[in-house]
Design a protein around this nucleic acid. Structure first.
Lengths: 220, 220
DNA sequence: GGGCGGCTCCCCCGCACGGGGGAGACGGTC
DNA sequence: GACCGTCTCCCCCGTGCGGGGGAGCCGCCC
């Protein structure tokens, strides 16, 4: 029984991105999309999603209003995950106060997004992924926001793991990666396992997909 | 006495693909690889290949320069097969003017690639594979270039194979694809095998990479 | 000094994957 | 009618992959 999720964002591109990331997971099913908070309540009633991924800024009804509307008017409401670009975090906290169960950053890695969805679906509310903690730490240290953003969009892979992922994303087998990096195949297997775990991928194919979807590698 | 061929392409993936396709043939032997045109002349001197599969765009020395360098400086030079993605066909014709014996498309089916190698090795120069004839026909009929590009860059996959490739590119396993398409896993395996053969891919990961690189699927 | 994370390598093990065949049913085309 | 391509399903078989452990070495940091 997969996690049913409804995507609410005024930008089709963001919805498409979320859909691509989430539907790559066998245990998550995107049951619908909406372009504005105003459409959320009826959709939640008809589609009965487990989770709603809710943008904050939307033309007619913003994510805060929509969140409280859903929680106010729907029986056994879905978990609500607030999606933000972080530019306006005061909105995010507003949404959390309105009853949202967690939030995630649009620039988060696919694996983090997936993880966030699974977490709220399981009932772990008020999600603070590692990426957000890092972000907060960065602000505490008064580092420039851009740097923090960089740290977010990039996977928390070690240098060596990034090397391996790059070669995976070019279609090399473990043995070929090993000979390329002048290490043993067992070493490569260790790195690959670590990469799969960190990315939340089940196999190397999903890892390569994550590499493309996150922009870690790009088509020619 | 097999056809000896040297592969020149800056992308390891392309080299690996060509190698995989060509070495599956008993009458073709890959004698070496190079990642740039700058390395071709000395390699041709030492390896004495019958055919050079030469990429056009390369970092240091492009395929046009490398072609004329080989023909200018090597006695009884090998046949030169220009490898292209078609994006910049002016380069291809430049290479042909520089003395190349034919060209082939990276997205051609393995059988066509093999055929092209055998043809130039036998002395049939100025090869026009079926895909290129189609292209010329498309241009002659004044059809939009995009349509021609589509026909070219996409392998000749059947509808069902495209369905399967799309799901592969979302990270689904054979069993998951089977349940999604309501067919047996053996059927999916058949389609996957056909896809791998047509794309010249060794495994599903390489097929997914090809799907991204060809624009068949796109990152979010 | 001790702890810790990164890189390296090793074992066992189950299984999905992919290659090699083949075959029946259907729908077009000649 | 005969032919061919597509889609469907089946067999056998080897192996690369990935999970689960562990271990030694190094450099950094407290």
């Amino acid at each position: 029984m997969p996690i049913k999720i409804l995507l609410v964002d005024d930008e089709p591109l963001v919805r498409a991105g979320l859909r691509a990331v989430l539907e790559a997971q066998p245990d998550i099913e995107v049951v619908g999309e909406a372009a504005d908070g105003a459409a959320v309540v009826p959709l939640v009633r008809s589609l009965r999603p487990d989770v709603v991924a809710m943008d904050v800024r939307m033309p007619l009804m913003d994510g805060i209003e929509a969140t409280s509307a859903v929680l106010r008017t729907v029986d056994s409401p879905p978990k609500i995950l607030v999606v933000t670009t972080f530019e306006n975090d005061e909105y995010v906290y507003g949404a959390l106060r309105a009853g949202a169960d967690g939030f995630l950053l649009k620039r988060a890695r696919p694996a983090e997004i997936v993880h966030a969805v699974r977490l709220v679906a399981e009932g772990d509310s008020l999600l603070f992924p590692a990426a957000v903690r890092d972000l907060a730490a960065a602000y505490g240290q008064d580092r420039p926001a851009n740097e923090a953003r960089e740290a977010l969009t990039r996977a928390a892979l070690t240098d060596r793991e990034e090397d391996v992922l790059r070669l995976m994303a070019r279609g090399l087998s473990n043995a070929e990666i090993a000979s390329r990096l002048i290490v043993g195949t067992e070493t490569v297997k260790s790195h690959v396992s670590a990469i799969l775990a960190k990315l939340g991928a089940r196999d190397r194919t999903q890892a390569v997909i994550a590499a493309y979807e996150s922009g870690f590698v790009s088509p020619a």
